[in-house]
Simulated scan of single mutants.
Amino acid sequence: MSSSAAYPDADENLEAIITRIEQKSRKIETLLKQSKPVEALKTALEGSPLKTRDERCKSANWIVVHRAMMAIRDVDGMFNSLDPEYYDILMK
């Protein structure tokens, strides 16, 4: 997983970033319906637009991450199952 590969440039077309977030959102909803909340969170964190300064992109991505997080009942178990790279993305 490399978030910088998915969003290599802060000046990238913002509509393309929003489109990818929308696609990620649909995938997360599918995982949540399959009762896979930790996988949904990992998917939400992958490819997060960390370098963009556009508030619309940041907000759209946060909504997706928040949706996945709210479905997790065992927070301690979730943190134990995440790789360190996901912690870094989550904190950013």
Rank of each mutant, 00 (worst) to 15 (best):
S3N: 13
S3Q: 11
S4V: 13
S4H: 12
A6Q: 04
A6H: 06
Y7D: 08
Y7Q: 13
P8N: 04
A10K: 10
D11G: 08
D11Y: 05
E12D: 08
E12T: 03
E15V: 07
A16I: 10
A16C: 09
A16F: 10
I17N: 01
I18R: 04
I18Y: 05
T19R: 10
T19G: 04
T19Y: 05
R20S: 09
R20D: 05
R20N: 08
R20F: 03
R20I: 02
E22I: 14
K24A: 09
K24S: 06
S25K: 15
R26V: 15
K27C: 06
K27T: 11
I28R: 02
T30W: 04
T30G: 12
T30L: 12
L31R: 02
L32F: 02
L32Y: 01
L32M: 01
L32W: 00
K33T: 10
Q34F: 09
S35Y: 09
S35F: 12
S35I: 08
K36I: 03
K36G: 02
V38G: 00
V38C: 00
V38Q: 00
E39L: 08
E39Y: 05
A40W: 01
L41Y: 01
K42A: 05
A44E: 00
A44K: 02
E46W: 08
E46Y: 10
G47T: 02
G47C: 03
S48L: 09
P49A: 13
P49K: 05
L50G: 06
L50F: 12
L50R: 12
L50V: 13
K51N: 12
T52A: 05
R53L: 14
R53C: 07
R53I: 12
D54F: 00
E55V: 14
E55L: 15
C57T: 06
C57A: 15
C57K: 01
K58S: 13
S59P: 03
A60V: 07
A60K: 05
W62C: 10
W62F: 15
W62R: 15
I63W: 11
I63K: 15
I63E: 13
I63T: 14
V64F: 08
V64T: 15
V65K: 08
V65D: 05
V65S: 06
V65F: 06
H66K: 15
H66Y: 14
H66L: 15
A68V: 00
M69Y: 01
M69G: 08
M69K: 07
M70T: 10
